[in-house]
Design a protein around this nucleic acid. Structure first.
Lengths: 203, 203
DNA sequence: TAACTTTGCTAACACTGTTAGGAAAAATAA
DNA sequence: TTATTTTTCCTAACAGTGTTAGCAAAGTTA
């Protein structure tokens, strides 16, 4: 009897519908104005249906956080694999990070912006660890190729990520009235800063 | 007739009362759970009284943003004046920035964390420009003292601030379960990264 | 004392996330 | 086919949020 299977399939369909609708709403009206009620209205179901698929609004957003980190990791891998030298890879990943944030503002806001409790999530969302591992790996290789390999890897990783995040988050707030065709100052800042970082990393 | 003056004084008193109470609430229950109603309850006035002093909740928060930048600027000036060499001043300001964020988490959250519309405010809150001018000045001096003075000052400034903000905002999210006496990794990252930055700045 | 101004309250509007309880629909058993 | 049980899903409410219209009371002036 395939009834259970069909039910499971239908439930999955509604789940997808919720996610698609929520995502559409985020893109149309911004991250802040995503509301459970509006999603329920749009999918023509009542509110509790959403709560039968997601424990809370935060859990729903968590799904997007996961997707965001997956996409970011894919872009980072692609950037890395276009180069051989670890230092070139670090530059490429930094630019990919910038591209990701620029092209997927909503994702970035969900991943870092909303709320303060990104702390517990760091360990619950495994996709974050995947991205971190990827970057640390390249930094490690760069350090080994450099002239002073006695550095704290964790410290250098945090430093690298902090530079990326700092530039992205400050630029995304100041950049909003950038006109099409204007030079991408954020990208320039990023390239310049990462150059300094690598300079200090490998000597 | 000092009636108008007394009225003005009383109004100012209520205004202060609102700000004090709101601040107490922020410190006790966190930035997120500040609510106009709770403040009204605490000061034993009705809600509209608050709206006769502040156009909106955001305007109320704006007051704290201004105070935060004032305090930050004071700390930066103090740090700068403890050194003579511009590069040493830049390091000192960076550490002061870190100290400020660590000791005044709530201020920092209000200044950068909440909401996305920090964009329009950058130009309306003059205290931000003051801080920016201060830092740019020191960077300028450092550049002139260095070996390659043909750099984009604005770019270097944004880079500097981005490093600070990136480290602070990532660390404040990861650092929450740091025990008393643990080494301050954020500070170490900051020192290391700024060293690299200065290295690339003055050559 | 009468007229006017200011002050500040009640109550509502329009939202938000979340959940309890019951009605309708679907699946199973007799 | 009818009766029973399970699943699904909606209505309605709770407890909040920011914000504002309208009116009563208090204070000030003539």
């Amino acid at each position: 009897m395939g009834i259970a299977e069909r039910r499971y399939r239908q439930k999955e369909e509604v789940r997808s519908l919720i996610l698609d609708t929520a995502w559409k709403q985020i893109q149309e009206e911004g991250v802040q104005s995503l509301s459970v009620r509006k999603v329920a209205d749009a999918i023509e179901y009542s509110v509790p249906v959403i709560y039968s698929h997601f424990e809370s609004k935060e859990a729903l957003i968590g799904e997007f956080v996961r997707r965001g980190f997956c996409l970011l990791t894919r872009m980072a891998i692609e950037a890395r694999d276009a180069y051989d030298k670890p230092t070139a890879q670090l530059t490429a990943i930094a630019l990919a990070y910038w591209e990701f944030a620029s092209q997927n503002l909503e994702y970035y806001q969900l991943m870092f912006g909303l709320g303060i409790p990104t702390c517990e999530k760091a360990h619950s969302v495994s996709e974050i660890l995947t991205f971190g591992g990827l970057v640390k790996d390249v930094i490690q290789k760069a350090v080994l190729s450099g002239s002073h390999p006695a550095v704290d890897l964790e410290l250098k990783f945090q430093s690298y990520w902090s530079i990326l995040h700092g530039i992205v988050s400050i630029r995304l707030k100041h950049n909003c009235n950038r006109k099409e065709g204007d030079p991408d100052l954020g990208k320039a800042i990023l390239e310049d800063t990462i150059k300094g970082y690598i300079y200090a990393l490998v000597g």
